[in-house]
Amino acid sequence: YSLIHDDLPSMDNDELRRGKLTVHKKFNEFTAILAGNSLLTLAFEILSGNNLQLSQNYKNELIKTLSMCAGHSGLAGGQYSDLTFENKSILKKNIINMQKKKTGELFGFCCESIAIIKGVNSIKRKKLKEIGINIGLLFQIVDDLIDYKGDSMIVGKPTRSDEKKGKATLVNLLGYEETINFAKNLKKKINQQIKKYGTKANDLLDSVEFILKRKF
Rank of each mutant, 00 (worst) to 15 (best):
Leu138Thr: 01
Ile154Trp: 06
Ile133Val: 15
Ser122Phe: 13
Asp143Ala: 02
Gly175Val: 11
Asn121Tyr: 12
Gly119Ala: 10
Gly150Leu: 04
Asn121Ile: 10
Gly119Met: 08
Glu112His: 13
Leu174Asn: 09
Thr179Gln: 06
Arg160Leu: 14
Arg125Glu: 15
Glu163Lys: 13
Ile141Gln: 02
Lys165Ile: 01
Glu177Tyr: 09
Phe109Arg: 10
Leu137His: 02
Asn121Thr: 09
Arg160Asn: 15
Leu170Arg: 02
Ile135Lys: 00
Lys118Leu: 15
Phe182Cys: 02
Ile141Lys: 04
Thr159Ile: 15
Lys102His: 07
Lys102Val: 04
Gly166Val: 14
Lys149Tyr: 09
Glu163Trp: 10
Leu145Asp: 02
Gly156Asp: 07
Ala115Thr: 03
Tyr148Glu: 15
Asp143Ile: 00
Lys129Leu: 11
Ala115Tyr: 05
Leu145Tyr: 02
Pro158Tyr: 00
Asn172Ala: 11
Gly136Glu: 06
Val155Ile: 13
Lys165Met: 12
Ile131His: 07
Thr159Gly: 04
Lys184Asp: 07
Thr169Trp: 08
Ala168Tyr: 08
Phe139Tyr: 15
Asn134Val: 06
Glu178Gly: 00
Glu163Pro: 05
Gly156Met: 01
Thr159Asp: 01
Phe107Thr: 06
Arg125Val: 04
Ile123Glu: 14
Ser113Val: 06
Leu138His: 02
Phe182Trp: 06
Lys126Gln: 15
Thr159Leu: 00
Ile146Trp: 00
Gly132Thr: 06
Asp147Pro: 10
